[in-house]
Simulated scan of single mutants.
Amino acid sequence: MQKRKSIGDIVLFAVTLVLAVVFFFPIYFNLMSAFKSNPEIMRDAIAFPKSFYVDSFKYLLTETDFPRAIVNSVLLTGLSILFMVLVIPMAGYAIERSNAKWTGAVFVYFLAGMMIPFQAYMIPLFKELKMFGLYGNLVGPIVIYISGSVGFGSLLYTSFLKGVPREIEESAAIDGCSRYAIFFRIVFPLLGPCTASMVVLNGLGIWNDFLMPMLVLPSDQPKTMIVEIFYFVGELSSRWDMIFAGTALSIVPVLILFVLLQRYFVKGIATGAIKG
């Protein structure tokens, strides 16, 4: 029995290792190609770079609109996540802790929004943005990202809040804390793993989003990093050195964020799944 279990562990480890290599290879290939010139990439894409070529990074950061695109990506992602963290936890808390009948209907309404594909309401949404004067600036996509994350965020927080004892809040209420003080001083700090999960999942989606910035932001101005990278892809030829360099610059912040929040992200997903 012990031997059979050991063989199973070895097989499971081998499969996990193979999957890890498969998923890591595109990142490795991109980072390796980012330090090659365009002719070198075209000549042998999988070979190691012969020299530490950084001219593509210099060109991107000094001769193009990529620095402005970096600022747009940071603002778009950072502001969206900030308002999500301020709004969605309160929505999940109100749904989970309220005994009113209408909260169940609101929760179902939020979840129903997750079932409608973006392409189904894309054109009416853009018309609505133009009607409210939000088309052509960063405010429009920020509002869309926040509203689009309410359904999943509410589901995540309500599942997590089921494991937070109500007695803690009742004790704070007896001590004279208001409803807002109970949430922000006592409940919200306990939601750290859940918040980290939401930040990682939504942050990755917003940072890597192509369609929304491409369609909403002005065509004559710098957009986001992902969109600016796309402009180096031509119909007859492509600047692969610029593409890989730009992609490498966009990958680094994501890797840093995930490494910093990995422990809380895994804990939040596991806890939410068990309690949900």
Rank of each mutant, 00 (worst) to 15 (best):
Phe83Ser: 06
Ile7Arg: 05
Ser154Met: 12
Thr62Cys: 11
Ala173Met: 12
Leu19Asp: 09
Met114Thr: 01
Glu96Phe: 00
Ile182Arg: 15
Gln119Asp: 05
Thr158Pro: 14
Arg263Met: 09
Gly276Ser: 02
Val21Arg: 01
Ile116Leu: 11
Ser149Tyr: 02
Gly192Val: 15
Leu17Gln: 07
Ala273Ser: 15
Ala45Arg: 12
Ser149Phe: 02
Arg185Gln: 11
Ser98Leu: 08
Val200Cys: 08
Phe48Gln: 09
Glu170Met: 15
Phe48Leu: 15
Glu169Phe: 14
Tyr264Asp: 10
Gly78Leu: 10
Pro49Ile: 14
Arg263Thr: 14
Ile243Trp: 02
Gly276His: 02
Gln2Lys: 07
Ala112Cys: 06
Glu128Gly: 06
Glu167Ile: 08
Ser154Arg: 03
Tyr121Gly: 03
Tyr109Pro: 06
Leu249Ile: 14
Leu86Pro: 08
Ala270Phe: 08
Ile88Thr: 11
Glu96Leu: 02
Ala14Pro: 06
Pro218Cys: 10
Pro213His: 10
Ile243Asn: 04
Gln221Asp: 02
Cys194Val: 08
Ile70His: 08
Thr77Asp: 13
Val259Glu: 09
Ala248Gly: 12
Ile116Pro: 12
Leu201Cys: 02
Lys267Ser: 11
Met212Thr: 14
Ile182His: 09
Gly140Thr: 02
Val139Asn: 05
Leu156Asp: 10
Met225Asp: 00
Leu217Phe: 04
Gly268Trp: 10
Gly192Phe: 14
Asn137Gly: 10
Lys36Gln: 01
Val266Phe: 11
Phe118Ala: 15
Ser73Asn: 11
Asp44Phe: 06
Glu228Cys: 07
Gly113Val: 11
Ile81Pro: 07
Pro222Asn: 03
Phe265Val: 04
Cys177Ala: 13
Leu60Val: 15
Ala14Glu: 05
Val21Asn: 01
Pro67Thr: 01
Asp9Phe: 00
Ile46Val: 13
Phe35Thr: 14
